[in-house]
């Protein structure tokens, strides 16, 4: 399971696939204040990226994945 709710945070762990997009979307819609923790996240499927771009939850954590850290985090945390 790559998408997990921990308290008020949604944690993404390891590679997240297209089938993780819907659970993520449900969790974020249920409470728009929930943050997403990417610390343990691996490569994110475009469907996941799209949910994060559309719902713009607060992003926390510095992932180890270089592409995610260098290119995606700045776009996802852009004001």
């Amino acid at each position: 399971m790559s998408v997990r709710l921990e308290g008020d945070r949604v944690r993404l762990d390891g590679p997240c696939r297209v089938e993780d997009a819907e659970p993520l979307l449900m969790l974020l819609r249920a409470d728009p204040r929930r943050a997403v923790d990417l610390t343990g996240a691996g490569p994110l499927h475009a469907a996941i990226v799209q949910v994060l771009l559309a719902l713009r939850p607060p992003i926390t954590g510095q992932p180890g994945d270089p592409f995610l850290r260098t290119w995606l985090i700045p776009l996802l945390t852009l004001a």
């Binding site: 997009a21 993520l24 819609r29 469907a47 990226v49 799209q50 559309a54």
Partner: peptide, 21 residues
């Protein structure tokens, strides 16, 4: 690297299975 939406993002109606990137 840049990402944008083909049709403006709309959180309430987002279809997670249709690519809009």
């Amino acid at each position: 690297f840049g990402l944008s939406a083909r049709d403006a993002w709309d959180a309430p109606t987002l279809d997670p299975y249709a690519c809009n990137l």
